[in-house]
Design a protein around this nucleic acid. Structure first.
Lengths: 187, 187
DNA sequence: TTGATTAACTAACGGCGTTAGTTTAGGTTA
DNA sequence: TAACCTAAACTAACGCCGTTAGTTAATCAA
């Protein structure tokens, strides 16, 4: 019925992440993706609506990889693990930090994570909306820290790794302490 | 000795902020700045080294305006006021959020703020470096929240203002509670 | 008045995202 | 097998972008 595709969305994603890893966010162009797939730029538009959708695809994919099989024994462990995983994902793909920071997850990507969060927060004194907002805030914080660390990939961070490790621990633990102070039942 | 300049850095800054306000981050181009100043693009390079330096100028200027005459009665008031001011600045210039989130302040801009912070944290149990890291973390958090709210300026935010107000209060107060829980002396 | 200096200019380079219109390859059907 | 259909590739171009090299013009000092 029709000509068989030489490329698909998954290959676009792969080429995009490779470019991000090798050249940073500035290296991610539709033309470079096309080159890498040995195809002309216009051909990409048979598979994806434009660069914005490529960003969406990257952000959604990295999120799904990040939360895959995420579990935790209680809210604090869950959130701590989530924070560490976000950081690990962005450490693997430093050039993606700027994209992740500026691209909202699509609803269908975000939704499956919701019950995980609301269940973990069930013992605490906050409603479902606030549980999600608190979790999003932690995400914002961790992504922002990653942006400070990896922001001008592929150039290496300006400070040594220990500096950012310490910053991460300090910020995340402080925020988690804040949740504990604010929302755990007094007894 | 020489020809009198028709434009200066301050005008570049003004034109840049106007473009940001009217068209968002995507509207900020060297060519658009030149047009607005009724000058050809190449002339800008007599006054500034390139677009990156324009971003730096914007980030530094907005920071200085944000912390101008900043005071606070104790660390909590100071940090709360700082958070509110950052948000107010980015609300005035929504298109600048993406720039502020990805541009590090120059040392000379950041340095004058340091004593304010270290003094406010003096009564607490953390050293100077951690005081600065904690404050930077709050900045990262607030800028990230602003990015979520204003990220695709000049399009309006997708949720109503009350939603973001609540999110901001919740996130900031939780983080401040964390500082209190972690670093105030037990008595 | 001449010369030096600086900031404007013109023109161009190589890149970008995206679109319109055309060709081509392969499966479906007669 | 031969004709047809369709989707995915292509060519070519548009209008942007940041930036640079080289040139002209305007002012001040000598």
């Amino acid at each position: 019925m029709s000509r068989p595709p030489r490329i698909d969305r998954e290959q676009l994603l792969g080429a995009g992440l490779e470019l991000l890893d090798e050249q940073g966010a500035g290296g991610l162009s539709m033309r470079a993706v096309a080159d890498r797939l040995q195809v002309k730029p216009a051909s990409l538009y048979n598979h994806i609506s434009g660069k914005e959708q490529l960003h969406q695809l990257i952000a959604d994919t990295l999120w799904l990889r990040t939360v895959e099989a995420l579990t935790g024994d209680g809210w604090r462990e869950l959130l701590g693990e989530l924070a560490r995983r976000i950081r690990a994902t962005l450490r693997e793909h430093p050039g993606a930090a700027a994209i992740v920071a500026t691209t909202n997850l699509s609803a269908s990507t975000y939704e499956p994570t919701i019950p995980l969060i609301t269940q973990a927060f069930a013992p605490l004194r906050l409603d479902e909306q606030d549980a999600l907002l608190i979790t999003s805030s932690l995400g914002v914080l961790v992504i922002g820290l990653a942006l400070a660390e990896f922001g001008d990939a592929p150039n290496p961070p300006v400070a040594p790794r220990e500096y950012y490790d310490h910053w991460f621990d300090l910020a995340v633990e402080t925020f988690l302490d804040g949740i504990a102070a604010r929302f755990t039942e007094e007894e």
